[in-house]
Simulated assay, not measured.
Amino acid sequence: MATDLEKAVTRDDIDGKGLKIGIVQSRFNQEIGNALLSACKSQLLLSQVDEKDITVMTVPGALESPLMLHEMALTGSFDGLIALGCIIRGDTYHFEIVANESARCISDIQIETGIPIANAILTTENEEQAIARMTIKGTEAAQVVMEMIQALKSLGRN
Rank of each mutant, 00 (worst) to 15 (best):
R11C: 00
T92Q: 08
I109M: 13
T124E: 09
Q43K: 07
I87D: 01
A2P: 13
E96S: 11
E112A: 15
T92L: 05
K52A: 13
T139V: 12
C40R: 06
I97Q: 09
L155H: 06
S154V: 00
I149M: 05
G18P: 11
G138T: 02
V24E: 03
K20H: 03
S38Q: 15
A35V: 15
G90W: 08
E6S: 13
I23R: 00
N100F: 03
K20M: 02
T58N: 15
Q25I: 05
A103M: 06
T123A: 14
V145H: 02
L84M: 11
G156N: 12
E101F: 09
M134H: 14
I88N: 01
R11Q: 02
A141T: 02
R157I: 15
H94N: 09
T55G: 03
G156D: 10
S107D: 08
E101C: 07
L84A: 13
S65K: 04
Q30P: 00
I111S: 08
A8V: 10
S154C: 03
S47R: 07
G18C: 12
S47Y: 02
K52C: 01
V24Y: 03
G156I: 10
T3A: 10
K137Q: 13
L44P: 08
G16D: 09
T124G: 11
K153F: 02
K153L: 02
I115V: 15
I131K: 13
L36Y: 11
I82G: 01
R11N: 00
L5T: 14
D79E: 06
P66A: 12
